[in-house]
Amino acid sequence: MSYHIVSIDAPSCSLSCKDGQLTCRTDEGIKSLPIEDVAAIVITSFSASIHSKLLLEAAKHGVGLVICENFKPASLVLPANRSTDTLLTRAQIQIKAQTRERLWRKTIDAKCHNQLTLACELASEDRRLEKLALLAKGRGKTKEAETARLFWRIYADNVAETDDFRRGRQEGGPNPLLNFGYAILLSTVLQNLFAVGIDPTFGIGHATREHSTPLAYDLMEPFRPCVDARVAQWIRENPKEDMTWEVDKAFKKWVTGFPLEKVDYFDLTLDVRGVIEGVIRSFRKALVSGQTGDYKPWTRTTTKWAG
Rank of each mutant, 00 (worst) to 15 (best):
V227R: 01
D228S: 09
D228K: 07
R230D: 10
R230H: 10
Q233S: 13
W234I: 01
W234Y: 15
W234P: 03
R236N: 10
R236I: 08
R236E: 09
E237Q: 14
E237F: 04
E237K: 12
N238M: 09
P239N: 09
P239Y: 08
P239K: 10
E241H: 11
D242E: 14
D242A: 11
T244Q: 15
T244I: 12
T244P: 00
W245T: 08
W245N: 04
W245F: 11
E246K: 14
E246M: 08
V247W: 01
K249C: 06
K249F: 08
K249N: 13
A250Q: 14
A250C: 07
F251E: 01
K252I: 08
K253W: 05
K253T: 14
W254K: 08
V255D: 07
T256P: 05
T256E: 13
T256K: 13
G257L: 10
G257M: 10
F258C: 03
L260D: 11
L260I: 00
E261R: 07
E261N: 12
E261K: 09
K262H: 11
V263A: 11
V263D: 05
V263F: 14
V263R: 14
D264T: 12
D264M: 05
L268Q: 13
T269L: 07
T269M: 08
T269A: 10
T269H: 12
L270S: 06
L270W: 15
L270E: 12
D271R: 08
V272W: 01
V272T: 14
V272G: 02
R273A: 11
V275G: 05
V275R: 04
V275C: 10
V275A: 09
I276G: 02
I276T: 05
E277T: 05
E277P: 03
G278Y: 07
G278Q: 14
G278T: 07
G278L: 12
G278V: 00
V279L: 05
V279Q: 05
V279D: 00
V279K: 01
I280G: 00
R281D: 06
R281E: 15
S282F: 04
S282D: 07
S282Q: 05
F283W: 08
F283V: 05
F283Y: 15
F283A: 03
R284A: 01
R284N: 00
R284T: 00
R284L: 00
K285G: 07
A286Q: 03
A286F: 03
L287Y: 05
L287I: 10
L287E: 04
V288T: 09
V288S: 00
V288H: 02
V288M: 08
V288L: 14
S289H: 09
S289V: 06
S289L: 12
S289R: 11
G290S: 09
G290M: 10
Q291P: 01
T292R: 02
T292I: 08
T292V: 15
G293E: 15
Y295T: 03
P297H: 02
P297K: 03
W298I: 02
W298A: 01
R300Q: 15
R300I: 07
T303D: 12
T303M: 12
T303W: 06
T303I: 06
K304F: 06
K304L: 12
W305D: 03
